[in-house]
Amino acid sequence: MRRLAQLVPILLGLSLLLFFWVRSLPGGPAAALLGERATPERVAQINRIYGLDRPVWEQYLDFLGRAARLDFGVSRMTERPVTEELVSRFPATAELAVVAILFAVGLGVPLGYLAARRHLTWIDNLSVAGSLIGVAIPVFFLGFLLKYLFAVQLGWLPPDGRQSPRLFVDHPTGFYVLDGLLRGDPASSWDALRHLILPGIALGTIPLAIITRITRAAVLDVLHKDYVRTAEAKGLTRAVVNRRHVLRNALLPVLTVTGLQVGLLLSGAVLTETVFAFPGVGSFLVDAIAARDYAVIQGFILVIAVIVVTVNLLVDLGYGLVDPRVRLR
């Protein structure tokens, strides 16, 4: 509860920063919209209609008042309420993030464990080198590369979007994979899943590299602990030692780092979604910044901030499940 209360000042500060930051960007919505057709009269008229000619603090208070009721205003790009845009685009990013994190954890934890267990062998060296490259490679470049290879050259996977354009299906929940299953149409779920693979890998690569490294380091660390040696000396089987002592203790830092990846995933989504024309929160935010769509920029970033903070909170609570010592405190 105390942790939740801490959210309030964080969000207030962030909203203030955001509000003034977007307004300090060169150009405004009117100029961005009208291009060379912008005349001073037209710009003034648009600013007046959308209340952008009022004192900034007044606009801010107005914004705060409405944001408290989850009303972030109306997008000038689409003429739809920001909340509606967010709700319709969030599932795309959520699906993408889930696939990316499954990819990163599903591959990273076993790989890191393997590397630690086979410390200083070729497997270990390969995993260390691989994770260095994984962290260093820019997301958009990797995305482009994957797309070029697997979509353009080999034609194995779709190049962009969330569903094949020739498949006319409804998406009541907005989670395309789930929608297919709910409709009893696994083929369309499969189609949606195939659209998630390349962007999922592109987005999941950095977290994969980080998780592999952390898992490796954590397992190595634990393996040299006295209690592991004691357990082994007691004659416990390797399986029991691993399960009760090594993995459980090594998991704590891995969990922390995985939680921290969520923020990284959301920022990586901006690039990945752009490369794969994936209609999620990130690509919409990019368009909004270009169009100086103040309402969208403010609303989206605030909500993303809430998500990141909430996930970190959940991770903290998760410690309790893994490590009873934390729960006691």
């Binding site: 797309k147 070029y148 979509a151 353009v152 034609g155 779709p158 190049p159 962009d160 979007g161 094949s164 354009p165 752009t274 490369v275 794969f276 024309a277």
Partner: peptide, 10 residues
């Protein structure tokens, strides 16, 4: 991305 989509039949 539009170019690649055309090339891959999207």
């Amino acid at each position: 991305a539009r170019l690649q989509s055309l090339q891959s039949g999207g």
